Amino acid sequence: MKNRGGFMGEQQTKLMNLIEKNIKNDGTHETKIDHLSIIRASTLTEPLHSIIEPSVCFIVQGAKIVMLGEEIFRYDSSQYLITSVHLPIRGKITEATKENPYYCIRLGFTTEQILEVVTSQREEDSLPPKRAMLVNKTTPDMTAALIRLLKLLDSPQDISALAPLYQKEILYRILQNEDGNQMKQYAILGSHSQTIKEVIQVINDNYAKPLRIEELAKSVNMSLSSFHHYFKLITGMSPLQFQKMIRLQEARRLLLSEGLEAAEAAFQVGYESPSQFSREYSKVFGLPPKSDVKQVQENLSKRKPVYLDSK
């Protein structure tokens, strides 16, 4: 077991024991605690495309990289990765073995939960927006709260009363940590971060419809240039690039899980040109739709594992 400073000594041992007591197999495991899942992987993975929801991911053992647009975030067992809005990402586990599996604790959160922790909204809390994803150092206080939260899996009768308290403490520790104010901005009404978060939700809900950039900017009282600036600052992508990633990931899901033909999947996610869809699909996933689906199905038949830490 490697020790990188985030989960140290006795605390790390306790957390590992709790995970191994409840999780025996590779995969993403939802728990009896709302918004809490545990990911286990005993092998390295190919890049996985997914939409990650607002959440914090603590690696307990192993390492991973997450790609947002052209930006790469690396983190390991000394760190956590926090995502403040829904984002299309690629993730790849880079450190995992059968003897020392990759373990990650994922805790989802809502804007309301952040606001419960924020006791005041002082003027100095209003900071310029930054990327909606960041990596920071895990503190002993966070680890202690995680241990208390996972212990509840052994006493289900206590979950409803105590889990919200421990989840709130974890968010509190994160907000008190370096860069915590940036996360807070996504919950404070009227901030640029919160405004772009609303726009992201609109795009996610209406990805198959034509994107009217001017109308979106007007709806949040921003000039077109300011809208583009803040959107790319927060997501690492332009609005059109963001929509394209959402469309392509949904199209891939339709191809794999519902067995649609490429042209039909393209139409359902908003493409008018099948040839354009195929070109953009190949650029993102490395193969044309039909070949990509065949390869994924072959990997599944060989029982190559897929690990999801987002929905």
Rank of each mutant, 00 (worst) to 15 (best):
1 M>S: 13
5 G>I: 08
9 G>A: 08
12 Q>G: 15
18 L>A: 07
21 K>N: 05
24 K>I: 03
26 D>Q: 00
27 G>Q: 01
29 H>K: 05
29 H>W: 11
32 K>A: 15
39 I>M: 15
41 A>C: 12
46 E>C: 01
47 P>G: 13
51 I>L: 11
55 S>D: 04
57 C>P: 00
58 F>W: 14
65 I>Y: 02
66 V>P: 01
67 M>A: 10
68 L>F: 08
68 L>S: 13
69 G>D: 07
70 E>F: 01
72 I>T: 14
74 R>L: 09
77 S>N: 15
80 Y>G: 00
81 L>Q: 06
82 I>K: 00
83 T>F: 09
85 V>E: 02
85 V>I: 15
87 L>R: 05
88 P>F: 09
89 I>T: 08
89 I>M: 06
92 K>E: 14
98 K>G: 02
99 E>W: 11
99 E>N: 14
101 P>A: 03
101 P>V: 02
109 F>H: 06
110 T>F: 00
112 E>P: 02
116 E>A: 01
117 V>N: 10
126 S>G: 00
127 L>F: 08
130 K>T: 10
138 T>P: 02
140 P>T: 04
142 M>K: 11
144 A>Y: 05
145 A>E: 11
145 A>I: 01
149 L>G: 03
149 L>Q: 02
149 L>A: 05
150 L>A: 13
157 Q>D: 14
161 A>Y: 14
162 L>H: 02
165 L>H: 12
166 Y>Q: 07
168 K>R: 15
169 E>Y: 03
171 L>C: 11
178 E>F: 10
178 E>G: 02
179 D>T: 02
179 D>W: 01
183 M>V: 12
183 M>F: 08
187 A>N: 04
188 I>S: 01
193 S>L: 09
194 Q>V: 01
194 Q>R: 14
195 T>L: 10
200 I>Q: 05
201 Q>N: 02
202 V>W: 00
204 N>M: 14
206 N>I: 03
209 K>Q: 13
214 E>D: 15
218 K>S: 10
219 S>H: 08
220 V>G: 04
224 L>N: 10
230 Y>R: 11
230 Y>H: 15
236 G>I: 09
239 P>K: 10
242 F>T: 08
244 K>F: 06
246 I>W: 00
246 I>L: 12
248 L>N: 06
252 R>C: 00
260 L>H: 12
262 A>T: 08
262 A>I: 04
262 A>N: 04
268 Q>N: 12
268 Q>G: 03
277 F>I: 13
283 K>D: 13
283 K>P: 01
284 V>C: 07
285 F>N: 03
286 G>Q: 07
286 G>Y: 01
288 P>D: 09
289 P>T: 07
289 P>H: 06
290 K>F: 09
290 K>I: 13
292 D>Q: 10
293 V>D: 04
304 K>Y: 08
305 P>C: 03
307 Y>K: 07
307 Y>A: 13
310 S>Q: 05
